[in-house]
Computed example of a mutant assay.
Amino acid sequence: MTAMTALNMTKIAFGCDGFDELRARLAARIERGENIVLSTRYLPKRVEEMTGGSLYWISQHRFGLRQPLVGFSELEGGRIGIVLAPVLIEVEPRPRRAHQGWRYLSAEDAPKDLPQDGASGEGIPAALHAELAAMGLL
């Protein structure tokens, strides 16, 4: 029997010019340790598979950050809340096409976390890693 891996989601950081702006938008709530709640119309059909998963943020046509999924909640007006942990984890800046709303992302297709010191696995600063990846050199 093989272990099940969590299903993840992707979402565009709409209205942000980059990940620094997304961090700034969420900073106060993260500092207070508050969960982040995003509103969507429908509960994902594969919600049971998302336990232990994350939401991967996309900006400027690339992955850059992820937040662990805490769960889902009901909001006013019949909407659904995607509840995210108050932490931002940098991931390898791989290219990703833009889309509307959110999409599923399998664990196998998810980018790897970057080391906490802001450098990629090869000792390259994260910003330079993103530029090289965008040029197709990594």
Results as ranks from 00 to 15, higher is better:
65 L>Q: 09
92 E>M: 13
16 C>G: 02
39 S>L: 08
61 H>E: 10
18 G>R: 03
37 V>N: 06
10 T>M: 12
113 D>Y: 03
52 G>M: 09
59 S>Q: 08
128 L>Y: 02
64 G>E: 08
1 M>K: 12
131 E>H: 11
24 A>N: 14
75 L>S: 06
17 D>H: 08
40 T>D: 01
123 G>K: 09
127 A>Q: 13
97 R>E: 08
14 F>D: 04
113 D>C: 13
83 V>R: 08
92 E>F: 15
96 R>A: 01
94 R>P: 00
59 S>G: 14
2 T>D: 12
88 L>D: 11
119 A>E: 14
94 R>A: 03
19 F>L: 10
53 G>P: 00
112 K>G: 11
16 C>S: 06
29 R>Y: 09
9 M>W: 02
49 E>M: 10
8 N>F: 07
118 G>V: 10
123 G>F: 10
23 R>L: 07
114 L>N: 04
84 L>T: 04
23 R>I: 11
98 A>D: 01
96 R>T: 00
11 K>R: 15
128 L>S: 06
9 M>E: 00
67 Q>T: 15
118 G>A: 13
18 G>I: 10
105 L>M: 06
135 M>E: 14
136 G>K: 01
15 G>H: 09
28 A>Y: 05
35 N>M: 06
13 A>E: 04
59 S>W: 02
36 I>D: 01
57 W>Q: 00
75 L>A: 08
42 Y>S: 14
1 M>V: 14
4 M>P: 05
132 L>S: 03
46 R>L: 12
88 L>M: 13
89 I>Y: 04
42 Y>P: 00
125 P>H: 13
116 Q>P: 07
22 L>P: 01
82 I>K: 01
81 G>D: 10
82 I>A: 01
36 I>G: 02
53 G>H: 06
82 I>G: 00
53 G>K: 03
128 L>K: 14
4 M>C: 08
74 E>L: 13
56 Y>L: 01
78 G>A: 12
101 G>L: 05
14 F>V: 13
66 R>C: 12
60 Q>P: 00
96 R>K: 14
37 V>S: 07
31 E>C: 07
1 M>S: 15
126 A>I: 02
129 H>T: 12
137 L>G: 06
19 F>P: 02
134 A>V: 06
107 A>F: 12
112 K>E: 15
61 H>I: 00
123 G>V: 10
1 M>I: 12
56 Y>H: 12
4 M>R: 15
137 L>Y: 03
120 S>C: 15
93 P>S: 11
117 D>M: 12
110 A>D: 05
63 F>V: 03
21 E>R: 12
101 G>H: 10
104 Y>H: 12
86 P>M: 01
81 G>W: 05
63 F>T: 03
69 L>N: 03
75 L>M: 15
71 G>Q: 08
58 I>L: 05
7 L>W: 01
109 D>A: 15
89 I>H: 05
85 A>W: 02
137 L>K: 04
98 A>C: 08
67 Q>C: 11
94 R>L: 15
121 G>F: 14
104 Y>R: 04
61 H>F: 10
83 V>T: 07
121 G>M: 12
27 A>S: 13
105 L>Q: 02
8 N>D: 09
16 C>I: 03
19 F>G: 01
108 E>F: 04
34 E>F: 15
32 R>N: 13
68 P>Q: 07
121 G>A: 14
102 W>V: 02
10 T>F: 01
134 A>H: 05
56 Y>R: 01
41 R>Y: 03
85 A>K: 08
6 A>N: 11
22 L>K: 07
